[in-house]
């Protein structure tokens, strides 16, 4: 297990290195002079100088990259070019909100997707299964920005149940927080739920066809017991992977949901920075998102190893 952890950590560091190169090259690929792109063609030479300094354009690429990574390792992600706030300060406010949103979406997907997936697999090819499969197909194709608008239109504007935007902090009032979180969570979690449902169904179906389930039946075990103790653990292995990967996606996919519901999270931070050409925030924001996704994937891998002895001991 320790060997496995060591390997995974080494791999993660390697990937992080590549990630940093990708993120860094976002600045390099800005066509023409990046500083001009930021302040506009009619800016004075002095303004250009300041921006060049901020973006560190005065030194060779390699030196700049090393400095940038060095600063990040020290916990310095730079300062916003528009507000001059530290990126770390901005992120510390916004990160928890995106994390809450992501976790709510995940809870939704797991608590609805897995049970429904099990039902669909158990009643394979029945009417229930057909209905669930149709809903899954629709759910997979629903663009979240459109779903968000539909939800606001129906639940906020028509029924007046929930506020259409904004967030009540969880510390202030849990139920208030719930009421502001529920629509965004539905928006971000619907597709995720469909994905989990589909994955659970197909994984369970595959496991139920396997030889060791036949053995379990030949042993005389009850159907419920077979599903609970023999099939579920095996079929959850791919489901956990999908949940992990999708949670990462969700964390990034929050951009649109946050924009629609005016939630001050990481996604809307980056989206705003993009529209303001605040490259420092864009760069650091994307880097932080990528690190988070990698960490989530790492946790999933560890879970995976706990579930599946074949990986743990290899």
């Amino acid at each position: 297990m320790i060997k496995f952890l060591g390997q995974r950590i080494f791999q993660m560091i390697l990937v992080l290195f590549f990630v940093s190169i990708v993120v860094y090259s976002l600045i390099i690929i800005i066509p023409g002079d990046a500083a001009t792109a930021v302040v506009g063609a009619d800016a004075s030479e002095e303004q250009l100088m300041i921006v060049r300094e901020q973006l560190g354009l005065n030194e060779p690429v390699f030196v700049r990259y090393v400095k940038w990574v060095g600063n990040m390792l020290k916990g310095d992600f730079g300062r916003s070019m528009t507000t001059n706030h530290r990126v770390t300060t901005l992120v510390s406010i916004r990160f928890p909100i995106t994390m809450q949103l992501t976790l709510c979406g995940m809870v939704l997907a797991v608590s609805i997707g897995i049970p429904l997936g099990i039902i669909a697999a158990k009643k394979n090819n029945s009417f229930t299964d057909m209905v669930l499969r149709a809903i899954t197909s629709l759910g997979m194709s629903l663009p979240n920005f459109w779903l968000g608008l539909l939800l606001i239109l129906f639940f906020s504007l028509k029924l007046g149940w929930f506020a259409p935007s904004g967030l009540i902090p969880i510390k202030q009032s849990f139920f208030g927080w719930m009421s502001t979180m529920i629509l965004p969570a539905l928006t971000i979690g619907t597709r995720f739920t469909a994905v989990v449902l589909r994955q659970t169904r197909s994984a369970l179906l595959e496991v139920l066809r396997s030889d060791y389930i036949r053995t379990a039946k030949a042993k005389g075990l009850k159907d419920i017991k077979i599903i609970r103790s023999h099939a579920l653990k095996n079929s959850l292995i791919p489901v956990v992977t999908v949940i992990g990967l999708q949670t990462g996606r969700l964390f990034g996919g929050a951009v649109i949901t946050e924009t629609i519901f005016h939630l001050p999270g990481m996604g809307s931070l980056i989206a705003t920075a993009v529209s303001q050409r605040d490259y420092v925030v864009v760069q650091s924001g994307i880097m932080i998102v990528a690190i988070t996704v990698l960490l989530i994937n790492f946790i999933v891998d560890v879970l995976y190893a706990i579930l599946d002895p074949r990986i743990r001991f290899k």
């Binding site: 060791y212 379990a216 030949a218 005389g220 075990l221 653990k233 095996n234 002895p309």
Partner: peptide
């Protein structure tokens, strides 16, 4: 339910692929 009480107790079975017939986890 009645069949289950016979399976594995009075009539048991072994299969062709022993490695996949056992639950891997």
């Amino acid at each position: 339910d009645e069949l289950r009480k016979i399976r594995g107790k009075k009539i048991s079975m072994i299969f062709q692929e022993p490695t996949t017939a056992l639950n891997p986890v």
